[in-house]
Each structure stands twice: as structure tokens, then as C-alpha cells.
Design a protein around this nucleic acid. Structure first.
Lengths: 332, 332
DNA sequence: CCTTTTTAGTTAATCGATTTACTTAACTTG
DNA sequence: CAAGTTAAGTAAATCGATTAACTAAAAAGG
């Protein structure tokens, strides 16, 4: 049977206020009443209704986690990190996947706001998120994760250092003599892609090499998308000697297609992937990857959200550095 | 500024009841007032507070999704399917990962119950979930997903047909002459594992072959766990000619280790994996897998939860059939 | 011993919606 | 035109907690 605090109070012959104080330890209650109340609570296995509590306290111990591309191994690990941290801190996470649909993103934020979540961790879609200003101006805590939106100022951010990611991977290939390096990416107009390409460009510049726009190919973030993209790119640009692929599924698709085309990796084309997917090490050839720590990004995003909740002035941008994992596919 | 219905009512010179009726269409309101109210609502971008609504309506349009092993590609896709369906039906999903910790599972269900979620989709941990009876007896909608608990009766279930999965994969290997088939699994005492092994046993029986307990090896559900398990199993049982590995990461680890041990697949050992992970096709050799449809399982679980919410008597068990994807690793 | 302070507990307002029961005016209808 | 319906709107109860303000009794202080 569903028990309310009123029922407990009646059974224990006290007021609901007393019951509440016992439960929350907000006032000293005599040993005797304390015990009597606890007994009744245990007897009926009473658990206070959080919705009522939430309404009164104007806080829900729930946060929203809005991702834009799921399932994707990077995002999945990020979710894992955030959920784990949230749990440790006594929070629950509402998971929403906008699937790169920006109008759904906007809608969702309104919905979660109305649901009175204590804050939102948002991996935004490609279209700008300037509409967020009306929320942050109202002190509704939002933290951007993974993807940055440089136009937003009063908002904390947790991302990987994508510029460095692009710079380091390009430098690694350049160092080993590759001058014509192709890039395959999935999502346009997001900071993850844009910054990696910027890093790549600057690495070229450092080596006094020209940037060639047609070495950059877009495709779907799927195995098939990677296969198509690599075919289209390598058919068009025959002199490319190395590839940097910004998405794990696409990397897998690309390798598959290159085998089909009898292109040897790394002999004919060197290859670097992004993200440390489980099979990277046993694929033939094992894939050299540059990785950003998704779990840490997720965990940190939640910590930052908590900071923002506790201090509306908190607006740091935390950028986590990449790591290069050298295996066979780049021939280095 | 945060607006309440009271503010809107005052500004529009009506009662909150009228505002509520306009918003919900629960009573006919004159054109004139209707427009006046809508205008004020738009002017302030007013969105009704769901927590208050939830408290009053005793429903939250939110469901809990409790998984026990995350991130895991199967579970991830299941989450994807469930979240997508939930969204389509106007629900949000609270995602919780119990990490195979049964006491945390119990705690979480109490918590979500108190949060007044409309129902829960639960992928239970290994330890029995008989404590669920007190919830289902109270008509709190819970559906079991992925893992079955046969001791629970008044509860709907959505699972893959794991018996058939074990039977079909064993039969496939037996048909091609393998008589000593090893199994590597991750989690004990869950229906997914138990039923697959039962199916495997029955397939052996059909071929009049004995079941050998020591062909069954357990390990951690990780790449490293798979590597260790395969080493331990193949060192102990030298005459095994085929392996069936029930987890994708372990499959990857096992292949990696077998390469290290200079065991050729499928020449020395044939191999079948479970679940259609992205890299299966480009791993060397491409992995033959038997798969159950995780996205469909997740989606169906949410549909079933909705059925259960609308009809407390709904207690079907939906079991989805496996598909065999033949590639090189089993040599068939 | 009287005043002040502290302690233990309660009453009632509050959070922000929904909804039942009621009122008043307008409209039918025989 | 009196009686019965219907329509449009509102007041107030309600959902189930928390908590400010209050009270009464006990303890402390002078």
C-alpha cells in the first residue's frame, strides 16, 4: 500500500513536521519519538515521495544528459563516465539522444527545464546553440561537453583538445615523410571536426606544406559511410599517402574498403584513426589511434555541472589532452 | 524570469483554472479568453512546471532504464532502441547502470519508485530479483529486459531467445565436424548465459555427444578477460577444436591472444562470437557471429512497458530469435 | 521565585500545477 | 414565461512533502 508522510505521522501519533525532521535530521527530536517514528517507517517500508519533495525544495537531484550522436563508442563511454559520477554524487541522469536534430535539442532543453532538472550536460548539435543564452541568463546550469560553441560565453565547457589532436596526428604523419594527408570526417560545423582540421592545417604550415581542401572528405558516421568516403577520396586524389579518420566506425569501414581495393596498409596508404575502440589492436593491421579520454570527459562534465550548480559564476573551459597510441597502420 | 500559472492568470485576468483548461484543452473556453491567455503564455514563453503537474497527476512521463553492464555494445544498442522509442512516445528515460551490483539495483528501484517514474525497464543483475514482487504486487510497472528471471511470474519480459542462440551456434559447429566445442562466457547465473549453455548441451545431445563441463570457461567481460580466458581454457583442454564466445569484447581479446599463441583461426580453432560488433567483418579473420537484435529488444521493452502501464494484467514474455552471420572464423 | 532562554513539537503556509464542485448567465423548450 | 439545460468560468481542495512561525513546557540565570 502506498504510504504518505501523513499516514506515518498518524500511526506514530505525531505531526508530519516531526516525521520530516526525523527523516532529514533537521531538528532534534526526542529519543522516544524518534524511535517510534523510525519503527513505523520501517514497518511500512516508507520512502518519501520525491516529487513532492522536489516541488517544495525546487531541486530534483536529477540532471539531463543530452547527446547528439548515440550510439557511438566515444559518446557511450562519455555517458558511462557521467552516469557513474552522477550516481556517486547522489544524482540521476536523464539520457536524451537528439540524433543531431537541433530543433529536438531545443525542445528537449525546454522540457528538462520544466521537469526541473538541476542542470544539463549538453553535447550540442552542429547548428549554433545561442538560444541557450536565455537559459544561462536565468541561471539555469548548463555545461557544454565534447563539442564547443565558441559563441557561448557564460557557460562552462568540458572538451577534448581537438586542435592538439589534429596537430599531433598530422605532425606524426608528417614526421614520417607523408606530405599528402587525407582527412575523413563525419560531422560538419562542430568544434571537434573544425579544431582537428585547424590543428592539421597548422601542422602542415609548420612543415611549409600547402593545405589542399580536396584532401578533406565527409561521410556518414557509419562503417558503410567510412567505406564510401575512402573510396571517393582515394579515387579522386590518387597521390594521398596517408589518411586520418576522425571516427571509429568510419575507420573500420575504410580499412574494409581499402582491403577490397587491394590497398595495403600502411605500405600503400598509412592510416591513423581517432578513438581507442576495442578492436583496434587486432584489426589487420592494428590501428594507430589518437585518443581523447571519453570517460574522463563525461565524469568531468558532471563535476563541472555540480560546480556550476553551486556557483553560477563558474565558467571554466576544461580541455583534456590527446594521447597517441602507435600501432602498425601508420607504418611509423 | 520564472513564470507560474498564477502569474499568467493574473496577467490575463482569469483564474488559474482557466489557464490550465486552455493549456490542456480540458474545457471549452471562449475564443476571446483563449487568445488572451495564449498571448500571455507566448509573451513570457511560459512552460508549465512538470513537477507540480506530476505531483498532481501522479505520473511523470518518465521511465527508468536500469542496466547492469554498461558500456557493452549490446546493452548500448538496447539503450538506443529504448530511448528512441521512449522519445517517440513522449517519455524520458532515466538511465542507471548498476554495474552488476544487486544491492545497488534494489536501492535504485526504491529511488525511482519514490521519484514516481511511470515504470521501469530492468536488466537485472545475477542475483535473484524476487524482491521485485513487492513492487509488482503494488502494480508498479516493471519489465524485465535481456535477462530473464524465471522465478518472477507477474512481470512482462523481453529477451532474446538465448536457448536457440546456443543451440543454433553449437549445431552450426557440430554440423561441420567439431565435437569438442569450448564456451567462454562472462556472467554466471544469468539467463542469457544459462540458456545459451542449455541450448549448446541439447545440440550435443542431438548429436549423441557428451557434455564436458570443463569446456566451459568464465572470464571478465573485457578484451583482457577474453584473452586470459582463452589462454586458460586452451592450455587446459588441448583437444578443443572450436570456440563459442558469448561476449564481443572477449571475442576480440580471444582472437588477439590466439594470434599471440600462433593459433590459426579457423584452421587450428574455429571460432564463433556473439553479437554483431562493427569490426567483426574486418578483423582477421572476419568473425562468424550469432546475433540477437539489441535495438529491437530495447524498443520492444519500452512498448511492453507502455502496455504494462496501461494494463496491469499484461505479462507477456517476448522472445526474439537469433540470426547467424557466417564469416570466415568458423571455417564453415 | 520570577524572568529569560532553550528545547521539543505543532500548525499552517508553501511549492505549482489539476480538477471537482459550484455559481452565474444565457439559452431551450413545452 | 417558468423550468430545465447548457455553457463559461472560478474558488478551493488536492497531490505529498518542507519549513517558517508559533506555542508550551522545561531549564537556566539572576
Amino acid at each position: 500500500m502506498k504510504m504518505t508522510m501523513k499516514d506515518i505521522a498518524k500511526e506514530a501519533n505525531v505531526s508530519t513536521a516531526t516525521v520530516s525532521h526525523v527523516i532529514n535530521g533537521t531538528k532534534h527530536i526526542s529519543e522516544e519519538k524518534h524511535n517510534r517514528i523510525m519503527e513505523v517507517i520501517r514497518k511500512y517500508n516508507y520512502i518519501p515521495n520525491s516529487t513532492a519533495k522536489n516541488l517544495r525544495k525546487q531541486s530534483t537531484k536529477t540532471a539531463g544528459l543530452i547527446v547528439s550522436s548515440f550510439p557511438d563508442s566515444f559518446v557511450t563511454e562519455m555517458i558511462y563516465g557521467a552516469e557513474k559520477r552522477a550516481r556517486e554524487m547522489g544524482y540521476n541522469l536523464l539520457l536524451i539522444n537528439t540524433n543531431e536534430n537541433s530543433s529536438y535539442e531545443k525542445e528537449t532543453i525546454n522540457l528538462l527545464h520544466a521537469k526541473m532538472v538541476d542542470g544539463i550536460i549538453l553535447a550540442p548539435t552542429a547548428s549554433g546553440a545561442s538560444y541557450l543564452n536565455s537559459f544561462t541568463d536565468d541561471n539555469f546550469p548548463i555545461v557544454l561537453v565534447n563539442r564547443d560553441d565558441p559563441s557561448l560565453k557564460n557557460i562552462p565547457k568540458v572538451t577534448g583538445d581537438n586542435y592538439q589532436t589534429g596537430f599531433d596526428s598530422a605532425t606524426h604523419l608528417l614526421k614520417h615523410g607523408h606530405e599528402k594527408i587525407g582527412i575523413i570526417y563525419a560531422v560538419s560545423n562542430v568544434s571537434t571536426t573544425v579544431h582537428r582540421i585547424e590543428g592539421y592545417k597548422d601542422a602542415l604550415k609548420k612543415y611549409n606544406l600547402p593545405f589542399n581542401d580536396s584532401y578533406i572528405e565527409q561521410g556518414h558516421a557509419t562503417v558503410e559511410g567510412g567505406a564510401e568516403a575512402v573510396k571517393s577520396l582515394l579515387t579522386r586524389e590518387k597521390d594521398i599517402s596517408a589518411l586520418f579518420i576522425l571516427n571509429d566506425l568510419m575507420t573500420i569501414g575504410a580499412i574494409s574498403k581499402m582491403k577490397e581495393l587491394s590497398l595495403r596498409i600502411p605500405k600503400d596508404i598509412a592510416l591513423m584513426g581517432f578513438g581507442d575502440f576495442a578492436s583496434a589492436n587486432i584489426i589487420d593491421p592494428p590501428v594507430t589511434n589518437i585518443v581523447l579520454p571519453p570517460e574522463t570527459i563525461g565524469k568531468t562534465a558532471f563535476d563541472v555541472l555540480l560546480s556550476k550548480i553551486n556557483n553560477p559564476e563558474y565558467n571554466k573551459h576544461i580541455e583534456l589532452p590527446p594521447t597517441l597510441i602507435t600501432r602498425k597502420s601508420c607504418g611509423c
